[in-house]
Write a protein that binds this DNA or RNA. Structure first.
Lengths: 331, 331
DNA sequence: CTGAAAGCGCTTACAG
DNA sequence: CTGAAAGCGCTTACAG
């Protein structure tokens, strides 16, 4: 592979001049410039990004750590981050923590070692606070994605409160009073916000929420199925509607509903966050809170760029609104 | 940030010794080693991966370029690649070409500039042959993923032929003779293989395939809808079954079917490649050829590792088998 | 307008 | 068993 030295000697100039021509960082005589450019052509020279990064203390790359690469919503966020990064001329280093704090830690260290210019993290469920401390100590720009924290850090997520309130209003308007919430792992901030939003919204409507209708803590579809199924039989105290807080939870709960032979809608109303792709094509047509996942990813990059340009800028926390697709499952 | 010089001076040794301790690359007296390790602790030293890579001419990173980050199947492949890369201690650089040869080219150049140890590519629909030539000239290990080529390069994809044959057999066994194939962009090798596999399988069954039942070239769900819809009305010459070659094509075709008020199954049988997530929970329950997308990604990394370890190994082409989930849509 | 040279932070022959 | 030093391929003050 040709190096800058090869180009310089072929063009009969110094490496400084080659560098300045390539980076347009100081004036070079048109004639000299032309000689350099044709030497670049002739040698097939391409600048070594590694060597360049080492000198500039800037890599033009960012790191993204997601908590669950298997979830469609996170796949969309990754897509959004990639798109925005490419637009800014940044390379993207991707890692998946798979909800494992140890893997998350290792991924962050690897990215830090590679001197990424900034980090975007959707934290794992049991993520340790020390991790963010660590990044802050390195003075490395950081953006929290989807799973936010009560910290002085740039962040972008969705407004879970408002979406949940709209969903509860929608259901209670239709006479539902015994609504089961399937909320998953409450250490995950987005799920906790949905959980809290549900209780607040129900309270505002003057409705009790018995503990038996709060189904928390399951992290797989199978476990959710097992937890939900036994709670469905009772027509006096059982739920008339189910509200799932993620695609995975919805899958487990819906399977339970079907296993018990209940009809959606009819004997059971059903709504979910995130939900299923192309769900307008299938029965039951499920009312879904659709996160702007792609835009979440884009916005995270936007916040990071802003921070890189203005390190002293005040902390910014973005809450994007979700769109609610009302369908027959809640009629 | 502490450097190896800081560690060396604090430990009272040379940087060589620090390096050798950290890499376990030559024997060091236990006592010296201990001093080094505590100096590492004290300074919070972390090796700079950039500088290390530059010396070693190896970055412990790989590049992945996918053609359509929006498709669930590709998201799964990315996930598989990430998982396997992490297991091998490799960082993953991700780029999306969005089916645009120019973006694909730019992504490959960026990855090459960053000196990734190898490349995995799911090529864009109109990908230029020169691109692979370019990578070969750099002597950079390359693995083709999902979208294969008739070239002497390591590759991993699925066996489209056998899956398509099974699908056609399944349908013809049930009496279907007028089967519409919705095959999309035939420049995409996987789609072309499905297309060819269909014709071969039909021929083997002695069935004609009129051009009116071959719906090719659409690249969006909306365009597919527009192409398919007018072909459904005719009960004499129209199809009794539809076979879609990707999720996106299936969405467009299914919407057309529903728009025309046809019942699946009943008045129209339907099957698809890739398909929809959790489709066992929804009606119509659609017969689906499920690619082992995650394993495809894992295998691609496996091939790359093999090539890195044994540059002279013979070219390997892997064809993984898909699983067919037979459901009511084809009954 | 251009060049000689230092230096980014490592690894690795070479020498003892 | 360990160290001094070269060198990976760039960028960037410094000097003229």
């Amino acid at each position: 592979m040709a190096t800058i030295v090869d180009v310089a000697s072929l063009a009969g100039v110094s490496t400084s001049t080659v560098s300045h021509v390539l980076n347009e960082t100081r004036h070079v005589e048109p004639e000299t410039k032309a000689r350099v450019m044709s030497a670049v052509q002739a040698t097939g020279y391409r600048r070594d990004a590694l060597a360049r990064s080492m000198r500039r203390a800037r890599t033009d790359s960012i790191g993204l750590v997601v908590s669950d690469a298997g979830e469609p919503a996170f796949a969309d966020m990754v897509h959004g981050v990639e798109e925005a990064a490419a637009q800014h001329g940044l390379s993207l280093l991707l890692a998946n923590s798979a909800e494992d704090p140890a893997r998350e830690r290792a991924a962050v260290e690897a990215l830090l070692d590679r001197r990424v210019d900034g980090l975007i993290i959707a934290r794992a469920a049991g993520s340790r606070a020390g991790l963010l401390e660590r990044i802050r100590n390195e003075k490395k720009p950081l953006v929290l994605l989807d799973r936010l924290a009560d910290l002085d850090v740039d962040q972008v997520g969705v407004n879970n409160q408002s979406a949940m309130a709209a969903l509860v209003d929608h259901l209670t308007d239709r006479g539902h009073e015994r609504i089961m919430l399937v909320s998953g792992d409450l250490r995950v901030s987005s799920l906790r916000e949905r959980h809290d939003g549900f209780r607040t919204a129900m309270q505002k409507r003057g409705l009790e929420v018995p503990a038996s209708l709060l189904c928390e803590g399951t992290v797989t579809a199978a476990a959710t199925f097992d937890r939900v199924r036994p709670l469905l039989g009772d027509s006096a105290a059982g739920p008339t509607a189910i509200l799932a807080c993620s695609t995975l939870l919805a899958a487990g709960a819906l399977r339970a509903v079907q296993h018990e032979g209940l009809q959606v809608p009819g004997t059971m109303a059903f709504a979910t966050f995130d939900g299923f792709t192309y769900s307008d094509l299938f029965q039951p047509q499920i009312t879904t809170v659709r996160q702007p996942a792609f835009q979440l990813g884009e916005s995270a990059v936007g916040l990071l760029m802003r921070r890189l340009e203005t390190p002293s800028a005040p902390t910014k926390i973005l809450r994007l609104e979700s769109e609610i697709e009302f369908r027959r499952s809640t009629d």
